[in-house]
Computed example of a mutant assay.
Amino acid sequence: MYQPPSQTFPPDLSDPCEGVTLAMSSATAVACRNDPTVLANINSHGGVFTLTQPDQQGISGYDRGNPKLKAEKGRSTTLGVVITPRSIPMLSKFTFTADYFNIKIADAIVSTPRDVALAQCYGGDKSFCKFITRRTSTVGDATVGAIRYIDSNSENNGGRGTEGIDFTVAWADKVGPGRLSANLAYTYLKNFYDIPLKGTEEDNDTGEIGYARNKAVINLAYKWGAFGVTSTTSYTGPSAMEDQYLKQNDLPAGAVRVGSKTYNDFQFTYAATKGVELYLGINNAFDAKAPPIISGLNGSTTGTETNASVYDAIGRRYYLGVRGTL
């Protein structure tokens, strides 16, 4: 609700007014000419709305919160089972779980997609024009009428749904002088979709970056006396670029993909006293590189050249600390 504005540079946006002339009579052309800055551009370019390359590449914008948001309402269906086969000697130390989930939200809080705002503003719904700011004059390479900012804020709009299965396998027992525990968590994503606006079609994101069909985490821990070591291995399966972005560039869904990615983290601990513990950790121990999603491509996080919400954009790093109880 109260997210402060954060600047971004949205990639691959097409101005629906580009190429509009004084003679065109379509609803989009009329809506474009109703903007005085667009009309000024048309009149200064021989009757055709014209953009330079700096105009097309210089679009910025802000992501904002919205104090008028309301709580989401949805319906969740879950079904789970826990198996602890104590009567089977080989499996007596194991615990197995499986959970099916199906979640649907009718009025999900979503960030207004910028391409949707453009299409709606010049397609008849003027309420979306509030997100768009055009240049009021020509300054250097920036042309009058060119888009300067396209903002996005959170709205109770459209919908969202997901369906899949979570599996876990846990095991723990005494090994040598200490105790070893292991846990595997795996998620199979059957379906994930967004509805950008009420009444529009579902945008299926299943298998795309951020919504990989297969994800897994393995945790191992060994504790002996005052010493302990833990490891976490995180796996994200192969993923595709967003299908709507590919469609804008005349490419079929799944045509551009990134491979699977695995990260390994380790932490070592030492209980110096009953209430004080020292720890040393290393994240992304093998310095796995994030898949390149360069600026200008859909899903790229500004300044990281990848999708930093999914992949590690920093690389190998260390930390040292102490924790205690009173």
Rank of each mutant, 00 (worst) to 15 (best):
T97H: 10
T97G: 13
T97F: 09
A98W: 09
D99F: 01
Y100V: 13
Y100M: 11
F101N: 03
I105M: 10
D107P: 06
D107S: 10
A108C: 09
A108N: 05
A108P: 11
V110H: 03
S111N: 12
S111T: 05
S111F: 05
T112I: 15
T112C: 08
P113T: 08
P113K: 07
R114Y: 10
R114M: 13
R114E: 07
D115S: 15
D115C: 10
L118H: 02
L118R: 03
A119C: 07
Q120P: 00
Q120T: 03
Q120R: 14
C121W: 01
Y122H: 08
Y122K: 05
G123V: 11
G124L: 05
G124Y: 00
D125H: 09
D125Y: 11
K126D: 13
K126I: 14
S127Q: 13
F128W: 15
C129Q: 01
C129K: 03
C129E: 04
C129D: 05
K130G: 10
F131R: 14
F131W: 06
T133I: 15
R134V: 06
R134E: 07
R134N: 12
T136V: 12
T136C: 00
T138A: 02
T138N: 00
T138I: 13
T138H: 02
T138D: 00
T138Y: 08
V139Q: 15
A142S: 12
T143F: 05
V144H: 03
G145N: 00
R148H: 09
R148D: 14
I150G: 01
D151V: 06
S152M: 05
N153E: 03
S154M: 06
S154G: 05
N156D: 01
N156M: 08
N157L: 14
N157C: 04
N157Q: 15
G158A: 08
R160H: 12
R160F: 14
